[in-house]
């Protein structure tokens, strides 16, 4: 049984433009994606909105392999900011999982 974290979406959201919850799971993005990414955007966005953090973490490679080419976004009928949402997810991995943001708390700052 998946562990749900109701605050997870707030830790991913960078600003008000994050709108994963607008997705209506129509599948157009998957149909047009040149890489045929199946889990991104809709499935991973649903995990974020539902607070299924472990599922999101399992899809790290998918999150980082998206080309940010925007072909899905310009075809999305719900106006989901797909590429900006993907960048927010990457930011989450960078800061919370890889501990990279270049600040003093950055894990690799002390050689």
């Amino acid at each position: 049984m998946a562990v749900l974290d109701p605050h997870f979406v707030d830790s991913v959201r960078l600003d008000d433009s994050f709108n994963a919850s607008a997705c209506m799971n129509c599948g157009i993005c998957t149909a047009v994606c040149p890489l045929g990414l199946e889990h991104l955007p809709r499935e991973i966005f649903a995990y974020v909105v539902l607070g299924m953090k472990e599922e999101v973490l399992r899809h790290q490679d998918t999150v980082f392999s998206c080309l940010l080419c925007k072909l899905c976004e310009v075809n999305c009928p719900a106006g989901v900011h797909i590429t900006e949402n993907v960048r927010a997810l990457r930011h989450y991995f960078d800061s919370e999982v890889f501990q990279i943001q270049g600040g003093p708390g950055d894990a690799a700052s002390h050689v």
């Binding site: 960048r87 997810l89 990457r90 930011h91 989450y92 270049g102 600040g103």
Partner: peptide, 12 residues
């Protein structure tokens, strides 16, 4: 760096 989401480094 923008694409990779490292926004704090990018901003500086």
């Amino acid at each position: 760096i923008y694409d990779l989401g490292v926004d704090e480094v990018l901003k500086a």
